[in-house]
Design a protein around this nucleic acid. Structure first.
Ligand SMILES: [Mn+2]
Ligand SMILES: [Mn+2]
Ligand SMILES: [Mn+2]
Ligand SMILES: [Mn+2]
Lengths: 219, 219
DNA sequence: AATATTATTTAGACAAATCTAAATCATAAA
DNA sequence: TTTATGATTTAGATTTGTCTAAATAATATT
């Protein structure tokens, strides 16, 4: 199966939107890929012909087994490159997504596996997302809740849901990154903002919107 | 200047063929890029419009100053990725060209410079070719001759001219790589074959064709 | 149930990159 | 200097991925 970069991007986005097995709609995918619904319909036909998606007119689409396999390979490459950029080249986590978006399209199993080995076969990328192994198997995600739902007093950051540059830059400015330990000082009912403290630093208050996008686990 | 991958490949190939300032012909470039002369003419018009080459119908072409600058950036990325693949991921030198052919198209100065730094700002790639610095300046190539012209008795391998997988695989099998020290034992006039010895190993005889493509310097 | 709204598809067009076949140019040979 | 050969360009097509505008289907509202 020889896929173009465009086809790979579609496959990956369908995978992302589908979460489990929800049907993906034309408009949602167009929005995700910053393209137009008409273009999505065109591509849907191509991917259906290649048996990578199940698709009936007006009924939305989901990845086929083969499509899912390919999606996991792309996601694997994407997340491994993100690890490389952060761990080895010392990029900060909000910079790496865009670069990985291109690097992920270099299709070489040997390269991918060597890279993984070189990085110590990491299980999670810099944003806390699990990295599929060479067989496409995902590590079971660690038990986690969003920061606004957390009940424990001391938590550690495991992931960031919204990976917009804006949020990641904000977190960077506040020195909140993956594995950062937070102490939840106060939960203000008025606007659901949360006061948190990172050890050795003065406590800060973050909005509900931010807290919703920070995933944490106890201790 | 936003170039497509195809345009970048053309620029790089023109750079390669032009060596100094020789005019590049349509057919030569078509052969190099494994495409057809008609396609080259089409692209020549585009690159001329973008002022990356000087081109008049039927007169061949050369890179403009801007084109040369871009070529050097692509070459820099290509050779740095080759270093990465060999030094860090332990690929052998005959495998890396193809992968670098894709990785070179990720255009990010920051990534390129970080990668260079990470590798210790290497001056030569795994095939002995010089790596342009961030300003496009090339290290003066070391004084070298092809193995069949060498006069010194003991030489060290500095580059390989023909980078076909076939030759590189042959050299690999004979344990000849960059920086390998060779002792020239005998030069047979009959077919211009050369008997060489790598320390600790029985001597071997290589053909003139191979010797012509191995560059060496004394000591 | 009829109508309005929104989602999706179709029709037709365009740019990029390629190709084949035919035409044209440059030049080497006679 | 004419002719033959090879190199190069042009004309016209094709594929891929995209778009706008119009048509149609699905769904929500009255
Ligand atoms: Mn991508
Ligand atoms: Mn990520
Ligand atoms: Mn390339
Ligand atoms: Mn090289």
């Amino acid at each position: 199966m020889n896929l173009s970069i465009a086809e790979e991007n579609y496959i990956k986005s369908i995978y992302k939107l589908q979460e489990g097995d929800t049907v993906v709609t034309t408009n949602a995918l167009a929005y995700e890929l910053e393209t137009k619904p008409a273009s999505v319909t065109d591509m849907a036909k191509k991917l259906k012909d290649k048996k990578l998606i199940d698709y009936e007119k007006y009924k939305g689409f989901t990845l086929s087994a083969e499509g899912k396999k390919i999606a996991l390979q792309i996601v694997r490459r994407h997340r491994l490159w993100e690890c490389f950029l952060v761990d080895k080249l010392h990029f900060s986590w909000e910079e790496v997504h865009e670069l990985a978006e291109e690097l992920e399209h270099v299709r070489s199993e040997k390269l991918t596996n060597r890279l993984s080995e070189y990085l110590g076969n990491p299980l999670f990328d810099p944003h806390g997302d699990p990295i599929p192994d060479a067989n496409g198997k995902l590590t079971k995600p660690r038990p986690q809740t969003s920061l606004d739902q957390a009940t424990a007093k001391r938590v550690v950051v495991t992931a960031v849901t919204d990976q917009s540059t804006a949020l990641l830059a904000f977190l960077n400015a506040k020195h909140i990154k993956l594995s950062t330990q937070l102490e939840i000082v106060e939960h203000y009912e008025y606007d659901n903002s949360i006061e948190i403290k990172i050890k050795q630093q003065p406590s800060i208050t973050i909005s509900e919107q931010v807290a919703k996008n920070i995933m944490v686990r106890p201790v």
